[in-house]
Write a protein that binds this DNA or RNA. Structure first.
Length: 642
RNA sequence: GCCGAUGUAGCUCAGCUGGCCAGAGCAGCUGAUUUGUAAUCAGCUGGUCGGGGGUUCGAAUCCCUCCAUCGGCUCCA
């Protein structure tokens, strides 16, 4: 007998050589029915494989990420099998599962594979999956593997890099593929499948290599789940910030101005300003000081900072002054400027931490194919700040920045987030700048700060920047998509390069530590995420226009304007819809434009100095005096920001 | 930058396999209507069919090229 430890710590005994299926069945029949794979001592494997020694195990189902990965990986095999039936000469390369489905990169060798092929591949896929294929694992020698794939340079390359003795093939139906596995017990659990799209992808992601055709697909255990998935995609399309931004007249692009350079329309600019004011106020409370620096900087500045060397090719190229021939760059980063502000006079340890904040607009040359709405642009504004502090202050400063980020998330209702702690790759210390002691201090400061703030974290080794470790916030929006927002990074490189110093209590010069942080990241990207998170239905405090006053006919326009003016004096963003349209039409337009409040004013209201309040999506909520309404809406805003 | 798709009025879209003056709805303008909680009525304006080149008696429709957008690849200080 062997001892099997379950995830909850329970230990059960099974006969030596039990299969994963038998172990699952021992836990419950229901689990055995939905089991997809088993993890044995950290290794995921097929359910039909046997367990020979004591082990701790987990059973994976469709509800686990690992289970989905196995499910989709097997689906990729079946899709490849289907495709090969129609394109026998196609060369397979790799076909992994991804976050939403799977893909297979295929060299069609000059033949074209188009959207017209999707339907027949899907049909064949379902026939094959229904036929109940099993995935049989076979160990093969390297020599054999190379022989089988002698006509496929991609697989040959993969095999070359594998260790002899660790190479496995998987046989399913008439299909065989070089594959590490594992796979589902039987293809018949895959009940629904759709090819989503095709796209070009370089072999091994290197643009010097041949471009392959990447076929994206997704599959599910139930047709209903596929339908729901497609519906979610529809919903995402409806929330697309490019579409909503156009509908709500927030921003636009112009070919004449240039691709990737957003133009903020009045309503978008209003929204953006509100966000800026909001964050400025929060930052002031936390002891930040605003600074302003120019949009261009001498190329030497970026040579000093190291950005020219490392990112010069991703910047707009320097502009030369006509007389002196000096080179200036559109600034790709604010930090060098801020370093110079720090260095503008001698600094004492007493004035640290020094927190310099700027809504700094930067310009970066993104490749044309990279541009995407507001999320990937060539000119954008960072909610940047640099904290210059003593090494022993790093942890406290981190905690304060975390507080700011969490407050923003709370106010904007990003309720589902994790913090990613990015540390050094311990195997490659030479990749990083700064001495070991500094790294250990900074990494521990981040880990402790996150722990003390009770953050849900994941730790990634090797994801740190070369100049320091960082903490990034990933949020899930209202429809479950992940976005990376705020970032906090420790930097040892810049203070050195700029030779920044402060005089310590010992009257000796010391080097400060620098923390880069941007809770929004960039305003452009943040607004895009916010649009998609809220579907354009912004919270009252943030929405570009809060109130529209609707006069019942010409006679009451004067009163309507008076009401709107008094609201504006009270700091409420209000306007009047005095078009010669019916009230019904104006209400409809306001509802469509996501106007939170509509004030209908006619004879009754004009006489009594009141307004009839209609709240978006709710309808008529009764009559109030002007002052009552002002108090009411202020209270609503306060509740949101509390 | 690369692969693929798309590009018709301000917006959303129709215009099939090349052939009468290129259409609709919304928006805009003009006029009438002066409205009580999600679309009042009528009329009008508006398009080098992304730009350029070519094939053809004839091109929005076919071909080439450039530009932009979309989906990916790569990268992201």
């Amino acid at each position: 007998m062997i001892k099997i430890t379950l995830p909850d710590g329970a230990v059960r005994e099974y006969p030596k050589g039990s299969t994963g299926t038998q172990i699952a069945a021992g836990i419950s029949e229901g689990l055995a029915r939905v089991a997809i794979a088993i993890e044995v001592n950290g290794q995921t494997q097929e359910l039909y494989r046997t367990v020979e020694t004591d082990a701790s195990i987990r059973i994976f189902t469709w509800n686990d990420t690992e289970g989905k990965n196995v499910f989709w990986h097997s689906s990729a095999h079946i899709m490849a099998e289907s495709i090969l039936e129609f394109y026998p000469d196609a060369l397979l390369t790799i076909g992994p599962p991804i976050e939403n489905g799977f893909y297979y990169d295929i060299d069609f060798q000059g033949k074209s594979f188009t959207q017209e092929d999707f339907a027949k591949i899907e049909k064949r896929f379902l026939e094959l999956s229904k036929s109940g294929e099993t995935f049989e694992r076979k160990d093969v020698t390297k020599a054999h593997a190379l022989e089988v794939y002698k006509d496929n340079p991609y697989k040959t390359e993969l095999i070359e890099n594998l260790e002899d003795g660790s190479i496995t093939f998987y046989y399913s139906g008439n299909f065989v593929d070089l594959c590490r596995g594992p796979h589902v017990p039987n293809s018949n659990i895959i009940k629904a499948m759709k090819i989503m799209s095709i796209a070009g992808a370089y072999w091994r992601g290197n643009e010097k290599n041949k471009m392959l055709t990447r076929v994206y697909g997704i599959s599910f255990p139930k047709q209903k789940e596929l339908d729901e998935h497609l519906q979610r995609l529809e919903e995402a399309k409806k929330r697309d910030h490019r579409k909503v931004g156009k509908e709500l007249e927030l921003f636009t692009f112009s070919e004449k101005v240039g691709m990737g350079l957003p133009l903020w329309l009045p309503k978008g600019a209003r929204l953006r300003e509100t966000l800026v004011e909001f964050l400025k106020k929060v930052q002031e409370a936390y002891g930040y000081q605003q600074v302003v620096t120019p949009h261009i900087g001498n190329k030497k500045l970026y040579e000093t900072s190291g950005h020219w060397e490392k990112y010069g090719k991703d910047s707009f190229q320097p502009i030369e002054t006509p007389e002196e021939g000096e080179l200036f760059m559109l600034k790709p980063m604010n930090c060098p400027h801020h370093c110079e502000i720090y260095a503008s006079r001698p600094r004492s340890y007493r004035e640290l931490p020094l927190r310099l904040a700027e809504f700094g607009t930067v310009y970066r040359y993104e490749q044309s194919g990279e541009l995407h709405g507001l999320t990937r642009v060539r000119g954008f504004t960072q909610d940047d700040a640099h904290i210059f502090c003593r090494p022993d202050q790093v942890k406290d400063e981190f905690k304060k920045v975390i507080d700011i980020v969490l407050y923003i998330f709370k106010v904007l209702k990003f309720e589902d987030y994790v913090a990613q702690i990015s540390l050094r790759d311990p195997e490659k210390p030479e990749k990083y700048f700064g001495n070991n002691e500094q790294w250990v201090t900074a990494e521990n400061a981040i880990i402790e700060a996150a722990a003390e703030k009770g953050l849900k974290t994941v730790t990634e080794l090797g994801e740190a920047a070369f100049y320091g470790p960082k903490l990034d916030f990933m949020v899930r929006d209202a429809i479950g998509r992940k976005w990376q927002l705020g970032t906090i990074q420790v930097d040892y490189q810049l203070p050195n390069r700029f030779e920044l110093e402060y005089t310590g209590p010992d009257n000796q010069p010391h080097r400060p530590v620098m923390i880069h942080r941007a809770p929004f990241g960039s305003l452009e990207r943040f607004v895009a995420v916010l649009i998609e998170h809220t579907a354009g239905d912004f919270p009252l405090w943030l929405t570009p226009e809060q109130v529209t006053v609707l006069p019942l006919g010409e006679k009451f326009e004067e009163y309507a304007h008076k009401v709107a003016a008094s609201l504006r004096v009270a700091g409420i963003r209000a306007g009047v819809d005095d078009r010669g349209e019916t009230v019904g039409k104006k209400i409809r337009d306001a509802e469509v434009a996501k106007m939170p409040f509509m004030l209908i004013v006619g004879e009754k209201e004009a006489e009594s100095g009141s307004v009839s309040v209609r709240r978006r999506k709710e309808g008529d909520i009764g009559t109030m005096t002007n002052d009552e309404f002002i108090a009411f809406i202020r209270n609503e805003v306060e509740k949101e920001l509390a």
